[in-house]
């Protein structure tokens, strides 16, 4: 307990140090204006400040939800198919793994070209980022199920279908859920990166424009908002992962 307490003290100390450095730098930077924390934090807690930001938050949230929904549904179905059908898996898993190795942002200019600057390109980009971990972990989870578990089910008279949903899915669940959790986090990244690289609406667009106009207080408020959203989403991911818990 004492150890944990000491860890906590040091962690707060680091946080304090970051804020202190921020405050001191902003006081001493003369060429460009850098908003100090004493100016940013009051804004952060001022609800009126969000009047024009709120619609953008909902756009970003919408993009995250849609891309995640699409990635999960397609990732799971393709993953289950490839995971259970060995020939399909040996054929397509290497192709998927190869595509996954490509730095995702490579696809973005094409998506901008196809889908334009508005939400569609962001959803598509976040979808691509999120689809791969979900499909690959589903394939991995399904194909790694211990054969003896399946044998046991057959010996007790289970059909192929029953075995699939009573044995294979639950056995693969922890790996699948961790893939879904990663996919969810990547949706946030995809949407924000997409918006910052060119868009019309959304938090990322606001961040980019606040920065180019040197509205640093606004930039910091928006950045902190994105961090809060990312942490909240990651927490949801942790909850999703815990759904597979099994009394260990």
């Amino acid at each position: 307990m004492r150890f944990k307490f000491k860890v906590l003290i040091f962690q707060f100390f680091i946080l304090f140090l970051i804020i202190l450095v921020w405050e001191l730098t902003s006081a001493n930077v003369s060429i460009i204006f850098l908003a100090p924390p004493t100016q940013v934090f009051p804004l952060l807690f001022n609800i009126w400040y969000y009047a024009d930001i709120l619609p953008h938050i909902s756009i970003t949230g919408f993009e995250i939800l849609v891309s995640f929904g699409l990635a999960t549904s397609t990732g799971l179905s393709v993953g289950f198919m490839l995971g259970t059908w060995k020939l399909l898996r040996t054929t397509y898993e290497p192709l998927l793994a190869a595509l996954y190795a490509v730095p995702s942002v490579v696809w973005y200019p094409l998506l901008l070209l196809f889908l334009g600057l508005d939400v569609a390109s962001k959803i598509a980009f976040a979808y691509i980022l999120s689809f791969f971990p979900i499909v690959l972990s589903t394939i991995q989870g399904v194909s790694q199920v211990d054969v003896v578990l399946v044998k046991a089910a057959y010996s007790m008279g289970a059909s192929k279908l029953t075995t699939f949903y009573k044995v294979i899915i639950p056995a693969a669940l922890p790996i699948i859920l961790s893939g879904i959790s990663t996919g969810l986090a990547l949706c946030v990244t995809g949407v924000i990166v997409g918006e910052m690289l060119g868009g019309i609406r959304g938090l990322g667009v606001l961040i980019a424009s606040a920065a180019t106009r040197f509205e640093t207080a606004r930039y910091f408020v928006l950045t902190i908002l994105v961090i809060i959203i990312a942490f909240a989403v990651n927490y949801c991911g942790k909850i999703i992962e815990r759904l597979g818990g099994r009394g260990a």
Partner: peptide, 11 residues
């Protein structure tokens, strides 16, 4: 690691 690092690019 778990937040979109790109938000720091403007800074």
């Amino acid at each position: 690691y778990s937040i979109p690092r790109m938000i720091f690019l403007p800074l």
